[in-house]
């Protein structure tokens, strides 16, 4: 099963290994990112921080077998770098039945993005993807670590509209 799909610009890092993975009882991490999958340095670096009992695979977004991962008995955490990758994943077969919970962890500031949580900045297009996914049945929330208060699509929309823009 896939207890969580996490969108995080930094992919595999401390927040995930120290908080989410133990909380969800994750037994494997799949990093779905085209750039990381094509970089030997990124792949080597990615495996550095893994605890001895937690394997990780780095694959291209299109290579993820969503149904196969969902059918597994052991929990698998899937990491995506951008909201755009999430949209591609949906186009590639990801449905709420396979992985209901989607978490926005860290999306850094860039031109056109507005702050919606302390660690998440979204553009209008990205917010639209998130809201549409929520309407399709995904449980989308934004927070860095499990102990933070989650922000749902309505809160994200409200904060986006309240933010001055950037």
């Amino acid at each position: 099963m896939i207890p969580l799909v996490r969108i995080d610009n930094r992919l595999l890092h401390g927040q995930i290994l120290e908080t989410w993975a133990p909380r969800l009882g994750v037994r494997e991490v799949v990093v779905a990112d085209d750039a990381a999958a094509s970089s030997p340095l990124a792949k080597a670096a990615m495996t550095l921080a893994l605890p001895p009992d937690l394997p990780a695979r780095v694959v291209r977004v299109d290579e993820v077998d969503w149904a196969g991962l969902a059918a597994r008995k052991e929990p698998v955490l899937v990491l995506l770098r951008e909201v755009a990758s999430f949209a591609r994943a949906i186009a590639g077969g990801l449905t709420p039945a396979l992985a209901r919970r989607v978490n926005l962890g860290n999306v850094h500031y860039a031109q056109g993005r507005r702050p919606v949580t302390p660690s998440v900045f979204l553009s209008k297009e990205e917010l639209d993807v998130v809201v549409a996914a929520a309407a399709d049945g995904f449980e989308v929330e934004a927070r860095a670590v499990p102990s933070d208060d989650p922000a749902g699509p309505a809160a994200l929309l409200a904060r986006y509209n309240a933010a001055a823009g950037g």
Partner: peptide, 8 residues
């Protein structure tokens, strides 16, 4: 490339 893994 290295900031996430080394942060972890």
């Amino acid at each position: 490339t290295l900031q996430g893994p080394l942060a972890a």
